[in-house]
Every structure is written in structure tokens, then in C-alpha cells.
């Protein structure tokens, strides 16, 4: 297959990649070195490869990289500013919403996209937004708590870095 070129912006850096027609955005980004997005199913079922493309959460396994020509891609690595975690990342740690961590980058990106659009979602809206991201470890309730806490940190109602403790 003949090589083609795609130019896109990955976490703020404009880059040109050498790709094939069949190369997915997932494969291209992973080969480029952004490995936070995972190959969980490569069929759009699990959400472990979710990235933000032009402001929308997308499953990168379902996008051919040539469709992403000129696109702005944001991954979980790109959320870190000056060495500080984004509130969504911090909230996932605080709430024990991470276990094996394989789904976490996708969960964080979907949450980021949700909160960008809807800064204080109801629980039903959280469940709807995250329903395309599968987590087998946590049972999801801690993830729901983390999304709520992310919203609270972003709106100044809570502070990141404090663990929830049960009695």
C-alpha cells in the first residue's frame, strides 16, 4: 500500500504523519507515541481509545487517520498543564475511580468532553455520556462520584487532592 501524509495537531503540536489508507487514528497516534489511548476492542465497543477531536469525544479506532487531516486532537497527556493534573484526572484519583487504569484515559476524555458542554450534569446525564466507555473493574459508582467531583472542582465548589473517606 502506498504511503500518504496527514497533518494534524496532537496536544497542541502540529505534526505530519506517514500513514496508509487503512490506518486508523488510533494506530497512527499510538505509533506516533501517544499510547494513553488503548486497543481495547478496535470496534468502537469499549471506549478505551477515546480522544477529543475538534472538540468532540471520538473513538479513535473508528476514524481513519486520513479523515483527521487538519484536526485538533486532544488526549489525556495533553490535559496536563505545567506538570499539574487537570481537575478531571485529579478527581478520578481522589474518588478511587481508577483500578487497572486501562479504561481511565478514555473515561477522563469523555468526562472532559461532557463537562465542557455541561458543567453541572445530573447523574442521568453522566450515565448517558459515559455509556460508551466500559470499565470492568470499578463498578462505575466511583466514576460517577469522580465526574461529580470534577464538576465541583471546575466550578470552585471543591478542592482536588482530597480523598473521600467512608466512616
Amino acid at each position: 500500500m502506498k504511503d500518504k501524509y496527514v497533518t494534524l495537531t496532537i496536544n497542541g503540536r502540529k505534526t505530519t504523519l506517514v500513514v496508509e489508507d487503512r490506518t486508523t487514528l488510533l494506530t497512527a497516534l499510538r505509533e506516533y507515541g501517544v499510547t494513553s489511548l488503548k486497543r481495547g476492542c478496535e470496534e468502537g465497543e469499549c471506549g478505551a481509545c477515546t480522544v477529543i477531536m475538534n472538540g468532540l469525544p471520538q473513538k479513535s479506532c473508528l476514524i481513519l487517520v486520513r479523515e483527521a487531516e487538519g484536526a485538533e486532537i486532544l488526549t489525556v497527556e495533553g490535559l496536563i498543564k505545567k506538570g499539574r493534573l487537570h481537575p478531571v484526572q485529579q478527581a478520578f484519583i481522589d474518588e478511587g475511580a481508577i483500578q487497572c487504569g486501562y479504561c481511565t484515559p478514555g473515561m477522563v476524555m469523555t468526562t472532559y468532553a461532557l463537562l465542557s458542554k455541561n458543567p453541572s450534569p445530573e447523574e442521568e446525564e453522566i450515565r448517558e455520556a459515559l455509556s460508551g466507555n466500559i470499565c470492568r473493574c470499578t463498578g462505575y459508582l466511583s466514576i460517577i462520584r469522580a465526574v461529580k467531583k470534577s464538576a465541583d472542582i471546575l466550578s470552585g465548589k471543591a478542592k482536588g487532592g482530597e480523598l473521600r473517606e467512608d466512616d
Binding site: 497527556e77 487504569g101 481511565t104 480523598l163
Partner: peptide, 18 residues
């Protein structure tokens, strides 16, 4: 806070495929 949660949240923890 759990060990390695930070790296998992950052996306920098490398699994076998990474």
C-alpha cells in the same frame, strides 16, 4: 491515594502493548 493511579490518570503507565 493509590499507587500508580497518578500515572494511570496521566496515561503514561505502559502496558504490554505500549
Amino acid at each position: 491515594p493509590r499507587k500508580y493511579d497518578l500515572q494511570k490518570a496521566e496515561g503514561t503507565l505502559q502496558f504490554a502493548d505500549d
